[in-house]
C-alpha cells in the first residue's frame, strides 16, 4: 500500500487534567477527500490544531508527507495548506497584500504563484481592494487561495462551508473535487453530513474526543443499510418462508406489496435464486439505502431511523 500523506497515530490532548481528544488515529492518502465528522465540541478543532502544529499533542504522532510534525515541524508544514476555523485575513490589507504576506514566508516561487492562484479562486477582479470590503464568500475564497500558495500536498479545511450560500457550496465542492483529481489530499471537518456524503471518499467520526468509526463512505453506508425491500406477487407464505430462511435473525416484516428483511448481499442473491426455483413472482428487490446521517446518528447514539 502506498505511503499515506497524513498519518495520525494515537493522538491525545489533555488540558489541566481534562482529556479533550483521546486516541485519534487515521490515514489520508494521495488524492483522497477525507471527511472528519463530529458534533460541536467533539474535539474536531482541537484535533485539526494539532495536525497543523498550533497545539502540542500530549501523546501520539502526526506524520505529514513523511515528516514527523513534532520533530521537524517546518518540513512537515511546508506541504500543508490550511484554514483553521475561519479564513484568517488582515482586513486593512488588500487581497493581494494578504497573499503576498504569506507568500513571502514561503519563498519566491510562492510569490510568483499569487496571480495564478487568485485567478483560480476567481478573485482577480477584486484582488487590490481592501479585504474589509469583501463578502463572506470572497473571504472564504481568499482563505483557500492562501492555503494553496505553497502548492500543498495536503489541504486542511475546518468547516469550509460555513457561511456559504448553496451556489457557493456547490462551487466549492467541484473545486475541491478537481484539486483531489490532480492528486491533492483534502481533509475536511464538518457537521454538515449531506455535504460530506457528496464530497468525501472516506470519513472518520469523532464523538467526545474519540474516533468511533472510520472507513470509506460507501462501506459505512452499506453497513448501515441492512434492510432489503422485497416486492413479490402476493402475500404468499412460500415467499415468506424463503425470506425467513435467509433474513438476519429470521425476522421478516410484512408490508404493503411485499416484505422488509435485513440481509447481506450474499443472502439476497441466494434468496432470489430460491424464490425463482419455487416459482414465486419477484418484481423488485432494493436495498433501502441509508444516508451518512443514519450512519452518524447510529454511531454517535443520537437516535435511530
Amino acid at each position: 500500500m502506498e505511503e499515506p500523506v497524513l498519518s495520525v497515530r494515537g493522538l491525545e490532548k489533555q488540558v489541566r487534567g481534562r482529556t479533550l481528544v483521546k486516541d485519534v488515529s487515521f490515514d489520508v492518502y494521495r488524492g483522497q477527500v477525507f471527511g472528519f465528522l463530529g458534533p460541536n465540541g467533539a474535539g474536531k478543532t482541537t484535533t485539526i490544531r494539532m495536525l497543523v502544529g498550533l497545539i502540542r499533542p500530549s501523546r501520539g504522532q502526526v506524520v505529514i508527507n513523511g515528516h514527523d510534525l513534532q520533530k521537524n515541524p517546518s518540513a512537515a508544514l511546508r506541504s500543508v495548506g490550511c484554514i483553521v476555523e475561519n479564513p484568517d485575513l488582515y482586513p486593512y490589507l488588500s487581497g493581494w497584500e494578504n497573499l503576498y504576506q504569506l507568500a513571502v514566508m514561503q519563498g519566491r516561487a510562492a510569490v510568483e504563484r499569487i496571480e495564478r492562484i487568485a485567478d483560480l479562486v476567481h478573485l482577480s477582479d477584486r484582488l487590490h481592494d481592501k479585504v474589509r470590503t469583501y463578502s463572506l464568500g470572497m473571504r472564504q475564497r481568499l482563505g483557500i487561495a492562501q492555503a494553496l500558495l505553497c502548492e500543498p500536498k495536503l489541504l486542511i479545511l475546518d468547516e469550509p462551508t460555513n457561511g456559504l450560500d448553496p451556489a457557493g457550496i456547490h462551487e466549492l465542492r467541484s473545486f475541491l473535487r478537481d484539486l483531489a483529481k490532480d492528486g491533492m489530499s483534502v481533509f475536511i471537518s464538518s457537521h454538515l453530513l449531506a455535504e460530506i456524503e457528496l464530497l468525501c471518499d472516506s470519513v472518520a467520526i469523532i464523538r467526545a474526543g474519540t474516533v468511533i468509526r472510520t472507513g470509506s463512505v460507501d462501506a459505512l453506508i452499506t453497513e448501515a443499510s441492512p434492510t432489503v425491500v422485497w416486492r413479490v406477487g402476493s402475500q404468499d407464505t412460500a415467499a415468506r418462508t424463503v425470506l425467513q430462511k435467509y433474513a438476519a435473525n429470521g425476522v421478516v416484516e410484512p408490508v404493503d406489496g411485499g416484505f422488509h428483511a435485513n440481509m447481506t448481499d450474499d443472502a439476497v442473491a441466494a434468496a432470489a435464486a430460491e424464490l425463482a426455483r419455487q416459482g414465486c413472482r419477484l418484481y423488485e428487490v432494493t436495498r433501502r439505502r441509508a444516508t451518512l446521517e443514519d450512519v452518524f446518528l447510529q454511531a454517535t447514539g443520537g437516535g435511530t431511523t
Binding site: S74, L77, R78, V84, D88, L89, Y90, Q106
Partner: peptide
C-alpha cells in the same frame, strides 16, 4: 485576537 497568528504559525516558519 484577530486569529491571524494561526496563519503565521502554520507556514513552516519556526
Amino acid at each position: 485576537s484577530g486569529g491571524t497568528i494561526k496563519m503565521l504559525l502554520t507556514r513552516g516558519v519556526a
